[in-house]
Amino acid sequence: MLLIHCPYCEEERPEAEFRHAGEAHIARPQNIAEISDEEFERYFFIRSNPKGLVFERWRHIHGCARFFNAARDTVSDRFLKTYKAGEPKPALDGEG
């Protein structure tokens, strides 16, 4: 079970309180009706799925219920940082 730091509650809580919510920093196109099938595929289906540093969304569903972002290493499952939704991708060592 992962221990996750919620940046809103400012507390480390067990994973059971959280729901993973997919890759972070994927912006929904503003003009979704006009984009090409290729652009829609890239937005909707393609994922970077990195072995190493991933940026992902979590939701503190059984706590404050808010969405936030995390940077995690998918090889060790170690969290490098969690940060509030809307904040830019943090620059971290080993980003690739």
Partner: peptide, 13 residues
């Protein structure tokens, strides 16, 4: 598990 990973381990829960 709910999160992506290459660790070949998961949560005990």
């Amino acid at each position: 598990d709910q999160y992506t990973s290459y660790s070949q381990t998961g949560s005990l829960s």
